[in-house]
Amino acid sequence: MGLRTILKKMKQKEREMRLLMLGLDNAGKTTILKKFNGEDITTISPTLGFNIKTLEHKGFKLNIWDVGGQKSLRSYWRNYFESTDGLVWVVDSADRLRLEDCRQELSALLLEERLAGATLLVFANKQDLPGALSKEAIKDALALDEIKSHHWCIIDCSAVTGEHLLAGVDWLLDDIAARIFTSD
C-alpha cells in the first residue's frame, strides 16, 4: 500500500473538503455563503479580509473560504490556495463593464499550480436582476470552453433567492468526491 493510498483513505474517512470562493468584489460571494448556510443576508458588509464557514452537506464536511474580492485584496488570494479541492468562481452576471476583468482574474488563477488539481464551479450570480446575462453569455465572456486544465461547470444562480445554489454545490461535491475518494 503506497503512501498515496493511505492519505486517500485518511481523507475518505474524514470526508472533508476544502472549497475556495473567489471573484471580483460585489459578485456576491459572502451572500452565496450565508444563503447556502441559511443565514440572514441583509446585514452583509463588503468583506474586509475573509470568512470561513464549516458546514455539513451530503455527508461531507465542507470548509468554505470566502475571501474578499476588492482589488487590494486580490494579491492575498494566493495565501488560500493550498490544498484546495474546489474553486468556486462567483460572477456578477449583470456587471458587463467588468466581465473582461473577471475573465483575466479567472484565467490567471487557473495557471496557479497549487490550484491545478481543483475542480472549478462558476456561479453566474444575480440572475434575479433583469439585466443579468445568461450563463451561456457568461461562459463565452469568460472563455470557459478554452479551459482544458480543470473540470469545470457553470451554473446560473441567485444568492438573493437561493435559486440553483444547491445544484451548483452538489455538482462540485460529486466531481471532487469522484476524484479524491473513489478513483484508485
Binding site: 460585489n26 441583509t42 446585514t43 452583509i44 458588509s45 463588503p46 476588492q70 482589488k71 487590494s72
Partner: peptide, 26 residues
C-alpha cells in the same frame, strides 16, 4: 442602500444611508 463600494473617486460628497457598511478603495 445596503452596501456601498466606492472606487477611484475624488472630490465627491456622499449623502448616505447604509444599513451594513460603506467601503472606499483608491
Amino acid at each position: 442602500c445596503q452596501q456601498l463600494r466606492t472606487h477611484h473617486t475624488t472630490n465627491t460628497q456622499v449623502y448616505l444611508h447604509v444599513t451594513s457598511r460603506a467601503i472606499i478603495e483608491d
